[in-house]
Amino acid sequence: MAHRFEIRKNKAGEFVAYFCFNKEAIFWTEGYKSKSGAQNAIDSILKNGPGAPVEDTTST
């Protein structure tokens, strides 16, 4: 699979959820004190993200 979520630790020792496509990180969350916090962020994205609208805030 070319895309996936990863949970990593940052330099501060916090858990961060990354969304990766191939080998590149596309976006990531804030740092969480627990691994379950990062997993909850992933679960929320999976639950709420698929139907989210795209909003273009650039001026034309």
Results as ranks from 00 to 15, higher is better:
1 M>G: 12
1 M>P: 06
2 A>S: 12
2 A>Q: 13
2 A>D: 13
2 A>R: 14
2 A>W: 00
2 A>Y: 01
4 R>C: 11
4 R>D: 12
5 F>I: 04
6 E>H: 04
6 E>V: 11
6 E>F: 01
7 I>M: 10
7 I>G: 05
8 R>Q: 14
8 R>H: 13
9 K>W: 09
10 N>S: 04
11 K>W: 13
11 K>A: 15
11 K>G: 10
12 A>T: 15
12 A>M: 11
12 A>C: 04
12 A>K: 15
12 A>I: 12
14 E>G: 00
14 E>T: 11
15 F>Y: 15
16 V>G: 03
17 A>N: 07
18 Y>N: 08
18 Y>D: 06
19 F>L: 07
19 F>Y: 15
20 C>F: 01
21 F>N: 03
21 F>A: 05
21 F>Y: 12
22 N>Y: 15
24 E>P: 00
24 E>W: 02
25 A>C: 11
25 A>S: 09
29 T>N: 03
29 T>P: 02
30 E>Y: 01
30 E>R: 14
33 K>A: 09
34 S>K: 13
34 S>W: 07
35 K>H: 10
36 S>G: 01
37 G>E: 06
39 Q>P: 01
41 A>I: 03
41 A>C: 07
42 I>Y: 04
42 I>R: 07
42 I>E: 10
44 S>Y: 08
44 S>T: 06
45 I>Y: 03
47 K>Q: 10
47 K>A: 11
48 N>M: 09
50 P>V: 04
51 G>D: 14
51 G>R: 13
52 A>Q: 12
52 A>L: 14
53 P>M: 06
55 E>P: 00
56 D>A: 02
57 T>K: 10
58 T>S: 07
59 S>K: 13
59 S>E: 11
59 S>M: 06
60 T>Q: 09
